[in-house]
Simulated scan of single mutants.
Amino acid sequence: MERIAAGVTALQRLVLDLRSNRTSREAQLGLNLEATPHVLAGDQNTAARTPVAKLPPRASLGKMRGPAARSSARGQRPRRVCAQSDMPKTAPLGILQPMSKEGKHHYIPVFYLKQWAGKDGRLCEYSNPYDRVRVRNVHPGGTGFVHGLYSVPGLPPEASQYVERTQMQHFDNEAAIALRALLDQKLDDPNLSWEVKIWWAAFLYGLVLRTPKYVAKLQERITKPFIADRIRLERDGTPSAKQAEIPLRAPIAAVEMLPKMFKSKELIQGINKMDWYTLHMSGQKHSLLTSDRPIIMSNGLARPTDFLIIPISPTTLFVAANSPKIEKRLKDMDIDKLVVAVNDRVAKQAVDYVYGIDNSHLLFVSRRLGKRLKSTPLG
């Protein structure tokens, strides 16, 4: 199998047709005005990475309905040990369902991992806790979490969960709606609303920031914590009508900054100005993998050759890019080489987990999991 080259050269630029009053609407969503030049400009000490050198002949840009994906999968019949079902159809996203219980805070959202789940509701998790990759069947809610990851120290037990319950779950619910739209519609469909585009862009950036490693790094930067009062919030993030007589007081925690960082106006606008498309595949030898660092990104997003790629199902890639040359490259590349290239990078970037629909990638993952290549300029 060919390994991924150091990266894709140019992807495609197309300024999305957002409405003229988008700025005011973004304000209604509470978008943060903070700039994040490090992500846009890239790491100046790192050469730009380009993940794929060629792109596929049999892939189709736009949408592929569920039956086509399922018929393609039935033609493959890969061996099943982890997942005993056929290639999963687009999974129900579980919108509005609680995404964490008893302190399970997912840094890999449940709705995202559900796309790799089989008919039994489980996916195949690859991990190497003891320097040897193992596989296990697991439900999407049973992996990719840390207990209390987004808890705020110093607050009462129930109140300490407010970031997870009122912010992170809200982000995931909105992003789940966006994922459904991306899987079910063409990206040029007028029904793909500005809200969908904004929440999906925020979700992509959030995947980079919400990891245990980045949360710990952010907390280390708070050298002079200050005490702050909190108001009680409802689950939708709005202030509660029943406020405590004594304000909730505790030092500001790094996790309380994450929701505003997710909504960085500069980052969201930067991603939305790129050309978006989905690449639906059929007839390939292997399915796409994902991991706890699934985003394949160039060294920044501001240059003409910059891009962002993420698997959003076992047969679908989401691509955002700045160059018009990528569409031709996608159509010209052999589909099996593209899948291998993406899987290679996704597995090498992983910190703890790689995910698939079955264990047929065990040898492939064993040779890559643990390398921990940088996924973005932030790490």
Rank of each mutant, 00 (worst) to 15 (best):
G379V: 07
D336L: 11
H105V: 02
A253H: 06
P37A: 14
P51I: 11
D358Q: 05
G30V: 01
A254F: 07
A253F: 08
R132H: 13
R368I: 06
Q219L: 01
G142H: 03
R25M: 10
G141P: 00
V39T: 05
N173S: 12
Y353V: 14
A59H: 09
T166P: 00
T9C: 08
R367L: 12
G283W: 12
H139W: 08
D120K: 07
C124P: 00
L11V: 09
A47N: 06
I231Y: 06
Y130W: 10
K260V: 03
N272G: 11
A321G: 15
D188N: 12
A59L: 14
P190Q: 06
L14Y: 09
Y126N: 12
D189F: 07
I231P: 00
K325Q: 13
G237C: 11
M257N: 10
K217D: 13
P212R: 03
T166L: 00
V340L: 09
P304F: 15
L301K: 02
R134V: 13
R22W: 14
A201V: 07
K331R: 15
L192V: 14
V152R: 00
D332N: 12
R122E: 11
I95A: 08
P51S: 13
Q84T: 04
K186N: 12
L218P: 05
R249P: 08
A59P: 05
I252W: 07
I271T: 08
W199D: 08
P311L: 05
N32Y: 04
A341F: 01
A5I: 09
A320C: 07
I198M: 15
M333K: 06
P314H: 06
K119Q: 10
P157H: 01
L308H: 07
D332E: 13
Y205V: 11
T290S: 08
L317D: 09
A175P: 04
Q167T: 02
S366N: 12
P78K: 02
R80S: 15
Y150N: 03
L369Q: 07
P157L: 05
G75C: 10
R136A: 13
N322P: 03
P212Y: 01
R134G: 14
L40P: 00
G142P: 00
H147T: 15
R65A: 15
L279E: 05
G42V: 02
A83D: 14
H170N: 07
S366V: 04
